[in-house]
Amino acid sequence: MRRIDAILIALGVFFLGGIVYYGFVSIGFDATQAGIWSQGLLVLGLIGWVLTYLFRVFTNNMTYHKQVKDYDDAFFAKQLEKMSPEEIAKLMENSDSENKVIRNE
């Protein structure tokens, strides 16, 4: 996300809060109650956003993690393309023997 995107989102939330406040005033709330309810909705929205962020963090579903995984996959695919069939067979044998050692431990 670019800096201007973050600024525009913040301004959008700010103006949305004002619109919600005036919406509450227009349906009959006094200024104090409208302020409390609009702030309450803002806090609930913020808590919801933080919860979605934490969910993405704990499930490793962040953009950085995806980029690293894609890079690793592309790197290993390129390395496999460079290897001869004999080298791949030798690598598979080594992998199988290591898996057997791990299972026996």
Rank of each mutant, 00 (worst) to 15 (best):
Y22K: 08
G23Y: 08
G23P: 05
F24V: 07
V25W: 01
S26G: 12
S26M: 11
I27R: 10
I27Y: 12
G28P: 04
F29M: 12
F29Q: 07
F29L: 15
D30Y: 04
A31S: 15
A31K: 15
Q33S: 15
Q33N: 14
Q33W: 11
Q33R: 14
A34N: 04
G35F: 03
G35P: 04
G35L: 13
I36C: 03
W37Q: 01
S38V: 02
Q39F: 12
Q39Y: 04
G40K: 03
L41S: 01
L42H: 07
V43H: 01
V43P: 00
G45D: 03
G45W: 01
G45Y: 01
L46Q: 02
I47C: 03
I47F: 11
G48L: 06
W49I: 06
W49F: 07
W49H: 03
V50S: 03
V50P: 00
V50F: 12
V50Q: 06
L51E: 02
T52G: 00
T52E: 07
Y53H: 09
Y53R: 05
L54H: 05
R56Q: 12
R56L: 09
R56H: 13
R56G: 05
V57N: 05
V57M: 12
V57G: 01
F58M: 02
F58T: 02
F58E: 06
T59Q: 06
N61P: 00
T63K: 09
T63G: 03
Y64N: 05
H65I: 05
K66P: 00
K66I: 09
K66N: 10
K66Y: 14
K66V: 09
Q67V: 06
V68F: 08
V68E: 09
K69Y: 10
K69Q: 09
K69R: 12
D70A: 13
D70C: 01
D70S: 11
D70P: 01
D70G: 07
Y71F: 15
D72Q: 08
A74L: 11
A74M: 06
F75A: 07
F75G: 00
F76G: 03
F76S: 05
A77P: 00
K78R: 10
K78V: 03
Q79L: 15
Q79F: 07
Q79C: 05
L80K: 09
L80S: 06
L80N: 04
K82T: 14
K82P: 00
K82M: 14
M83W: 13
S84G: 14
P85E: 15
E86C: 00
E86H: 04
E86S: 07
E86G: 03
E86A: 08
E87T: 08
E87W: 05
E87M: 07
I88H: 03
A89S: 14
A89T: 13
K90D: 14
K90R: 14
L91V: 07
L91C: 05
L91Q: 10
E93M: 12
E93I: 05
E93V: 07
E93S: 11
N94A: 12
N94I: 12
N94L: 14
N94P: 04
S95Q: 15
S95M: 09
S95F: 15
S95A: 08
D96E: 15
S97F: 09
E98R: 09
E98M: 13
E98W: 06
E98C: 04
N99H: 05
